[in-house]
C-alpha cells in the first residue's frame, strides 16, 4: 500500500527534485560569480573595496539561511517585484557567495607568492598575472572545498519551501498530508533522493578535479 503510494507519487517527488536542482544551479552560479569577484577584491582590491567585501561576507555568513529567506521574501519584495523562486535564489545565492569568497580567497592566497613575483618579473601586467598564472592554480585547488559548498547548498534548498518554493521537501509534505500520515517512509525516500544527488554531484566534481589536474604539477609539500 505504502509502496504503491511511493511509486505513484514518484513523478511529483522527482518534479520537486528538479525544482530543487534548478534552485541549486542558480544559487551556485550567482555565488560563483559574486564569490570569485569578492575573493579577488579581498586579495587584490583597494582597502575600501576589501573592507566592503569583508563586511558583505561577515553579514551573509552570520545570518541563518531561513531568516535570509524570510527577509528576502517579505523585505526585498517591498521594493522590487520578485517571486518566491527569485527571492530564494537571491537569499541563498548571496549567502553562498559569502562562503565561496572564502574558499577562493584561501586558494588564491595558497598559490606561492613567488609565482606572482616571477610573472611580474617576466613583464606580465598584474591583471594578466592574476588571470593566467594565479587563478588557473587557485581554481584547481578550490574544487575540493567547493564540493563541500555544493553539498551544503543542496541541503539548504530544502528550506525554500518556507517562502513558497515547491521543491522536494514540500512535495513530500503534500504526500504526507493528502494521505494524513506515512511521515517516516516518505521522508526516507526524500532523504535517499537528496543523498543520491549529493553523491552524484560530488562524484562529478571529483572527476573534474582529476581531469583538470596538471600531471607532474603538485602543490603538496612545497607550499
Amino acid at each position: 500500500m505504502i509502496v504503491e503510494i511511493i511509486i505513484s507519487q514518484m513523478p511529483y517527488l522527482l518534479h520537486g527534485l528538479w525544482v530543487a536542482l534548478q534552485l541549486l544551479a542558480c544559487l551556485l552560479a550567482l555565488g560563483l560569480v559574486l564569490g570569485l569577484s569578492l575573493a579577488l577584491l579581498e586579495v587584490y582590491g583597494h582597502w575600501t573595496l576589501r573592507w566592503l567585501g569583508i563586511l558583505f561576507e561577515r553579514i551573509f555568513r552570520g545570518i541563518p539561511a531561513i531568516v535570509l529567506l524570510l527577509l528576502f521574501y517579505y523585505g526585498v519584495t517591498d521594493f522590487v517585484e520578485i517571486g518566491s523562486f527569485m527571492a530564494a535564489v537571491l537569499a541563498l545565492g548571496l549567502r553562498s557567495a559569502a562562503y565561496q569568497s572564502q574558499i577562493f580567497r584561501g586558494c588564491i592566497l595558497s598559490v606561492p607568492p613567488g609565482q606572482m613575483q616571477a610573472a611580474r618579473a617576466m613583464g606580465m601586467s598584474k591583471m594578466k598575472a592574476v588571470r593566467d598564472i594565479v587563478l588557473p592554480q587557485a581554481l584547481r585547488l578550490s574544487i575540493g572545498p567547493w564540493t563541500n559548498e555544493f553539498s551544503s547548498e543542496m541541503k539548504a534548498t530544502s528550506l525554500a519551501y518556507v517562502i513558497g518554493v515547491v521543491e522536494l521537501t514540500r512535495q513530500a509534505k503534500y504526500i504526507i498530508s493528502s494521505t494524513q500520515g506515512n511521515i517516516l517512509i516518505v521522508f526516507a525516500v526524500v532523504a535517499a533522493l537528496y543523498f543520491i544527488f549529493n553523491r552524484l554531484g560530488n562524484w562529478g566534481l571529483y572527476k573534474l578535479e582529476k581531469k583538470l589536474a596538471v600531471p607532474g604539477f603538485e602543490q603538496r609539500g612545497d607550499a
Binding site: 534548478q22 544551479a25 542558480c26 551556485l28 552560479a29 560563483l32
Partner: peptide
C-alpha cells in the same frame, strides 16, 4: 561551466514567469 549555469539560470527564470 559558467555559460552552462547561466543558461540554467535563464531557463529557470522563464519557468517562473507568472
Amino acid at each position: 561551466l559558467v555559460g552552462g549555469t547561466a543558461f540554467a539560470v535563464v531557463g529557470a527564470l522563464g519557468l517562473n514567469a507568472a
